[in-house]
């Protein structure tokens, strides 16, 4: 597979390390009343879709960017690649 890195251009997927569903960006609030349940769902439950999947890849043998890759799990076709930090900021992850 080839991942079109937003900064570096197309790179072989073998340069990357895969983590999983991009929902791992949505780390819950530790002080929420149901924090235990929220953390359980956050860490363990997955949509695991057959089709479009937003997922985290790390450019381990490259610039060490975390990327959010949108890839079809049936065809492996990649439709978008974004810097995870941009996605995280856009959804309100701050400090």
């Amino acid at each position: 597979m080839i991942i079109n890195h937003p900064i570096l251009g197309p790179r072989d997927a073998a340069e990357f390390t895969y983590l999983g569903d991009a929902s791992l960006l949505n780390r819950p609030d530790w002080q929420a009343a149901d924090a235990a349940d929220q953390f359980y769902e956050y860490l363990y439950l997955r949509d695991n879709p057959a089709g479009e999947h937003r997922e985290l890849w790390y450019h381990e043998q490259g610039d060490r960017s975390w990327l959010v890759v949108t890839r079809n799990t049936l065809t492996h076709e990649i439709s978008s690649v974004e810097l995870a930090s941009d996605v995280a900021r856009a959804q309100g992850n701050k400090k």
Partner: peptide
């Protein structure tokens, strides 16, 4: 292999990836 697809019919999310 397809557990998530079947259990999605019952709106159940699983601790599983394919």
């Amino acid at each position: 292999g397809s557990s998530s697809r079947i259990m999605a019919h019952a709106n159940i999310r699983l601790p599983i990836e394919s």
